[in-house]
């Protein structure tokens, strides 16, 4: 059974079709890049996988189940904007995650927070944009989940932190999990990806192994992306 199964998934917002008959199967043990320009449906797809939106047609299955309480237990989600109570400080947010998620590894979170120089006593709302993002990522990656849904995890951070985040994703990678990273900053992350999915106007236009793309086209994923999505 595939870790994630997406069947004929369509999502409409009024007259706008955000996702159009998307079908995908994602096996465990891989890091997948969900790539597409702004407005291509990346966030909508991730929100459906996480149960924050419901499909207009079709369905998605995680470990064979539709998104709900059971799947939230095994899905670690990094939203594209902060959803945490920002009056809390780092320590309190770690406590919160520990209360909510049985798969949360506190030591891992504390180690990451320390590595990134985030103040345990600082309130989230007083942190810079980049630090907020780092903290959220620490919390999400410290879970030992089956599925990681990371919506634009590297958008607002400096290159050194970007490297740290990518190393964190690699070091947390395990054979039982699937990590989905949505981004348009492809050149920064393409070396860590197994498979890439190109989304264009709500449709999957490509789903392939990144190494196969480099092998066959002699281009980086980034170069191929620029061709497919040339404006």
């Amino acid at each position: 059974m595939a870790r994630i199964e997406i069947n004929n998934l369509t999502k409409e917002f009024g007259t706008l079709t955000a996702l159009d008959s998307v079908a995908l199967e994602l096996e465990k043990g891989q890091i997948v890049g969900l790539l597409g320009p702004n407005g291509s449906g990346k966030t909508t797809l991730i929100k459906i996988l996480n149960g924050l939106l419901t499909p207009t047609a079709g369905n998605v299955l995680i470990n064979g189940m539709e998104p709900g309480v059971e799947t939230k237990r095994v899905v670690a989600y990094l939203p594209d904007r902060n959803a945490l109570p920002d009056y809390m400080n780092t320590q309190q947010l770690i406590d919160l995650y520990q209360d909510f998620f049985t798969d949360f590894n506190r030591t891992k979170a504390e180690d990451m927070v320390l590595d990134l120089g985030i103040d345990m006593k600082q309130q989230m709302k007083r942190m810079s944009k980049g630090t907020k993002e780092k903290l959220q990522l620490c919390l999400v990656m410290a879970r030992e989940a089956d599925v990681y849904l990371l919506d634009e995890p590297i958008g607002g951070v400096d290159p050194a932190t970007r490297d740290y985040i990518l190393r964190t994703i690699i070091s947390n990678y395990n054979e039982d999990a699937v990590v989905i990273i949505s981004t348009h900053l492809i050149s920064d992350i393409e070396s860590v990806l197994d498979d890439v999915i190109f989304l264009k106007e709500g449709k999957v236009v490509l789903h392939r192994n990144a190494e196969d793309i480099r092998e066959e086209t002699g281009e980086s994923v980034d170069q191929l992306f620029r061709e497919v999505f040339r404006c």
């Binding site: 043990g29 490297d163 190393r167 690699i170 990678y173 070396s191 860590v192 990144a210």
Partner: peptide
């Protein structure tokens, strides 16, 4: 894993 992290590449 350590080599993959060091190189910043996919462990597979």
């Amino acid at each position: 894993r350590d080599l993959a992290m060091d190189a910043g590449v996919n462990p597979n």
